[in-house]
Structure formats: structure tokens, C-alpha cells
Amino acid sequence: MTRRDTYVCGIDAAIDVVGGKWKVLILWALHAEGTCRFGQLKREIPGVTEKVLTSHLRELEADGIVRREVYEERVPRVEYSLTPLGASLNEALEPLGAWGRAHLLPQDHHDRRSA
């Protein structure tokens, strides 16, 4: 969280962490799938570029929302998951997702996604 001393309110602080389309979709994918590797996350979030996904994962990690675990194996493996802080942020976003499903998605999409 880069601007801590300039926040006007709690919404301002929260939006700084999840600002933009891709960060909330990363949170949703990690919540839905649990621990994910980079390629799996990219498949779960259609349209995101590798550059943007990498950048946002780094920012979310720096903010304590996402945990990055590196496994030193013959072929190194990196996995991403939500921290407890990230899980609590996802819980806070659930009512917003419910509002979007109820008011903006076509009826046939209601059962497909829970974000």
C-alpha cells in the first residue's frame, strides 16, 4: 500500500489495493481455485497479459494480499495463494460481486460465476 499517509477514507485505501479490473479478478481466481501457478492464473483470467498479471501479482504481494511461494526443484515452481489479509479482502468484495450479479449480469450468467 503505497499511499498510506494520503488516504481520505477506508474506501480510498481499499481501492488503492484493488484498483482496476485485473486485481479483483486475480483475487477471485485465487479464491475460487486456491493455490495457483502463473499459467493457471493466466488461463483463469481471460484477456490479461503476462506483463499485467506479473505486475499486479507483485503489487498484491507487496501489499500482503497474495503469497508467492517458490519451490526450488529441478524445474523451479512458483505458486500463488491468498494470505489471510487477502482472504478477508475477498470477503469484503463479496457483497459488491453479489450486487453486480443481481443488477448487471444477464440471467444465464448468474449461476456460472460466484464473483
Rank of each mutant, 00 (worst) to 15 (best):
G10H: 09
E44T: 07
G47H: 04
A29R: 04
L82C: 01
C9Y: 08
E91A: 15
R112W: 07
V48H: 00
I45K: 00
V52K: 07
R77Y: 08
V66R: 06
L93W: 08
L27T: 02
K42F: 01
T54N: 09
V24W: 02
A92F: 12
E33N: 12
T2R: 10
D5E: 09
D63H: 06
T54E: 07
S114Q: 14
V70Y: 06
D16Q: 14
G86Q: 01
A87E: 13
H31A: 07
W99C: 02
T6G: 07
G19C: 09
L96D: 05
L25C: 12
Y7P: 05
V70I: 13
L93Y: 08
R4Y: 09
A92C: 12
I15G: 00
L93E: 06
F38I: 03
G19S: 12
T83Q: 05
L25K: 15
I15K: 04
A98F: 05
E91S: 15
T35V: 13
E72D: 08
G19P: 02
Y71V: 12
V78D: 01
E94P: 04
S81K: 13
A92M: 02
S55D: 01
R3H: 13
L53Q: 02
R43S: 10
R68T: 12
D63M: 02
L85W: 05
L30K: 08
G97H: 11
I45R: 03
G47Q: 00
G39E: 03
L105D: 08
L104Q: 07
V75Y: 07
R74Y: 11
A14H: 08
P84F: 00
L85F: 12
V48D: 01
Y80Q: 01
K51F: 06
H31L: 10
V70N: 06
R101K: 06
D111M: 04
L27A: 07
G19W: 07
E33R: 14
L25V: 07
E44M: 13
D5N: 12
L30D: 05
V8I: 14
H110S: 00
L104E: 09
R37A: 11
D108C: 02
I65T: 05
I45S: 01
Q107V: 14
M1V: 10
E50A: 08
D12V: 05
L85S: 14
M1I: 12
A32V: 11
T49D: 03
I26P: 03
L57Q: 00
R4L: 13
I11Y: 08
T2F: 09
G97F: 15
R101L: 07
Y7N: 04
V8H: 09
F38Q: 02
H109S: 10
A102G: 12
S55T: 04
E61N: 03
L105T: 11
R37T: 06
A13F: 13
V70R: 15
R101W: 00
